[in-house]
Design a protein around this nucleic acid. Structure first.
Lengths: 141, 141
DNA sequence: TTCATAAATGCAATTTAGTTGCATTTATGA
DNA sequence: TCATAAATGCAACTAAATTGCATTTATGAA
């Protein structure tokens, strides 16, 4: 019994992208990860299978079409994770060791209120939220 | 009737930093801004009065002590604003033109719930939240 | 007020992150 | 099968941020 791999080919085509081996490889790589990963990490995993530029451009288009999500862990570079299969969620990041834990948290009602009060914006289409703290192991030390 | 400038000297010393002319200049510069600004912008304003390195290190220490706050507008570089005088708030950023509007938004109750449910973290000490959307002028076009 | 000291600074060099231009290749749908 | 727009790879480049180190300075104790 194997868990079915999502149909990346169809997913890409529906998003108006070509289903190239490179992009599928990129998506397969992200599929294996449980937390958002850095570009440098993906590069290492791919061992040169994809050029740096292809990687950046690939991620850009995937983020744009909502297949992948970008997160800022205050590490000076972006982190990426698949935005399919799993429910929308946030992260708690340890400011000491970098450990990441997923967090359910429904910001949408707040976002709606924010949009209502706003003078310059009618609608909010997206948001980033990350939480920071010291994880239990780092607190003990 | 002039609005009193915050006592940066005392503020810095309480935070355990030296009250150097450079840091005070940096804080005065941020005081004039109504929205978070990029490092490059500060550099331009300062016209070389402070070395790039001093600027980065100054911001780092100010963020660390909570006098300044960092924000990620998805522009590929950090933005900074004073974290004193004004109430904690978030931002709505136009994904097209970059216009920024402040947003009140009380995430704390959600953050508390998140911390309660967390297995790896006992407390959440900080969070980032930015909202994104198309501003009214960009929607019309 | 003087003075020792840790903190802060400035400069040069370097690293890291991400982008651009362009020629070549390839997925796709007609 | 084929034309074409999209995607890729390479090299060069820009932008963002950091490091090492010698010098200067704010600060508090004497």
């Amino acid at each position: 019994m194997k868990s079915a791999q999502p149909d990346f080919r169809t997913l890409l085509q529906k998003a108006g992208h070509k289903a190239t081996p490179g992009r599928i490889l990129l998506l397969q790589t992200l599929l294996k990860e449980s937390e958002p990963v850095a570009v440098a990490y993906i590069q290492k995993k791919l061992k040169g299978a994809l050029d740096k530029v292809t990687l950046y451009r690939g991620l850009e288009s995937l983020v744009e079409s909502g297949i992948v999500r970008e997160a800022d862990f205050r590490h000076g570079h972006a982190h990426y994770e698949l935005n399919i299969l799993r429910k929308h969620h946030h992260h708690i990041v340890c400011t000491d060791c970098g450990t990441v834990e997923d967090a359910e948290c429904n910001i949408e009602p707040l976002a709606r209120k924010v949009a209502e009060k706003s003078l310059k914006f009618n609608a909010i289409t997206d948001h980033s939220t990350e939480f920071f703290g010291l994880c239990n192991s780092c607190t003990k030390v």
